[in-house]
Every structure is written in structure tokens, then in C-alpha cells.
Simulated assay, not measured.
Amino acid sequence: MSPEFVINLAQEAIKTTILVSMPVLLIALVVGLVISIFQAVTQINEMTLTFVPKILAIFLGLILFGSWMLEHIATFTINTIQQIPNYIR
């Protein structure tokens, strides 16, 4: 197993991780920003107001993007398992 092979595998793993986590993180970022602006405008400082909508939005995002995320993770896993003979060399 050459150093280039290990670096390529690590790059693919990091790329897959970023790609799969990006939709949920963007949803949480947007919802958190909207809630923060709402709280600043109305001067409401309720802690549950920040968490509950964000959790609901993340669950909705997982429902919407879950199959796509699972497909990318499964593709990466299948490719990694199929390359096990190359790891041994």
C-alpha cells in the first residue's frame, strides 16, 4: 500500500464526509441565523426558541436528504470494500 493510495483514500473519505454533512449543516445555519435575527428584532431571549425550530428543521432536512446521503455513504463504503485486495498489496 503506497502513501499515495492512503492519501487518496483519506481525501475521498473527507470529501464524502463534507458532502454528506453539508445539507444538514446548511439547514441548521440558515434556521439559526433566521431565529437569531428574529430574537434580535423582537428582543425575545427564550432558549427553547433557538433549539426547537432548529431540531425540527434538521429532522426535516434528514427526511428530505436522507436517501441521497445514504446513497453517497453506501457508494463510498462499497468502493472501499471492493478495493480491499489493493490494500493488501
Rank of each mutant, 00 (worst) to 15 (best):
M1K: 12
S2C: 07
S2E: 11
S2H: 13
E4K: 14
E4R: 14
F5E: 03
F5P: 00
V6K: 06
I7F: 12
N8E: 13
E12P: 00
E12L: 07
E12K: 08
A13W: 07
K15I: 00
T16R: 03
L19T: 04
L19S: 11
V20K: 02
P23L: 02
V24R: 01
L26M: 11
I27Y: 02
A28Y: 08
A28H: 07
V30R: 09
V31H: 02
G32L: 13
G32N: 15
L33R: 03
L33V: 09
I35C: 02
S36G: 10
I37Q: 01
I37S: 01
I37T: 07
F38C: 10
F38K: 05
V41M: 02
T42Y: 01
Q43I: 04
N45Y: 12
M47L: 11
L49G: 01
T50R: 15
T50Q: 15
T50I: 08
V52D: 03
P53E: 09
L56V: 14
L56M: 15
A57W: 12
F59L: 14
F59D: 03
F59Y: 11
G61P: 03
L62A: 08
L62H: 04
L64I: 15
W68G: 04
L70D: 00
E71P: 01
I73S: 10
A74Y: 09
A74T: 11
A74F: 09
T75V: 07
T75Q: 10
T77D: 11
T77P: 02
I78G: 01
N79C: 02
N79A: 07
Q82P: 00
P85K: 12
Y87E: 04
